[in-house]
Amino acid sequence: MLQVSIYRYNPEQDAEPSMQDFQVDTGGKDLMVLDVLELIKGQQDTTVTYRRSCREGVCGSDGVNINGKNGLACITPLSECVKGNKLVIRPLPGLPVIRDLVVDMSLFYAQYEKVQPYLQNDTPAPAIERYQSPEDREKLDGLYECILCACCSTSCPSFWWNPDRFIGPAGLLQSYRFLADSRDTATEERLARLDDPFSVFRCHGIQNCVNVCPKGLNPTRAIGHIRGMLLKRAA
């Protein structure tokens, strides 16, 4: 029997959060963490609350803190995270808890919105589409795959302390995705908005974001590229 401990908090009833223990029969299978949550919700306690949708690592809904490391519950197998037959599941750290494992992502989305994550081009639109060379398209690899699960930003101490000022790894990865896009013409405006002591420069390069990204992306490298562009612009 797998020992599972889940963070419980219902602000309408509980004075403070607590951990609730469950015993789960995995049938000897290497289940995903989400399967364990489903087993608990289906068989033991229907009030356990979490977000989920696609259950295959595409939607980014079920980012949680699993045995101390952020990840997507649906694509994290027990063999990868369970140590000593114990599984501890908490909400993503640093964001306000709405209930149990569900966090309020408003701050995260507000930072995402700040980088204006859409293509901006002030030249007349062509008849069909804006072409891009295969080489220019390649520059977007490792950037466009982000699913905004918030695992990276909520593992970043700089984002914990200044979530209102520091854009965070997820937002900055998306910022660079548009800075690097050959079809985007708003590069100067984008960079001008990032040149303050907080938006980019709160990153101290500890790479927690790289360590947890379920899609294997590297926000620290993207932040390095942004710094390089800011330096080039100012030099």
């Binding site: 209102d164 000022r165 303050d196 002591p197 907080f198 710094r227 330096l231 100012a234």
Partner: peptide, 16 residues
């Protein structure tokens, strides 16, 4: 609110 008023150069890039 935390601002840059007491940072060395007031610019993130320059401080960095």
């Amino acid at each position: 609110m935390v601002t840059a008023v007491t940072s060395l150069s007031r610019s993130g890039l320059s401080d960095w």
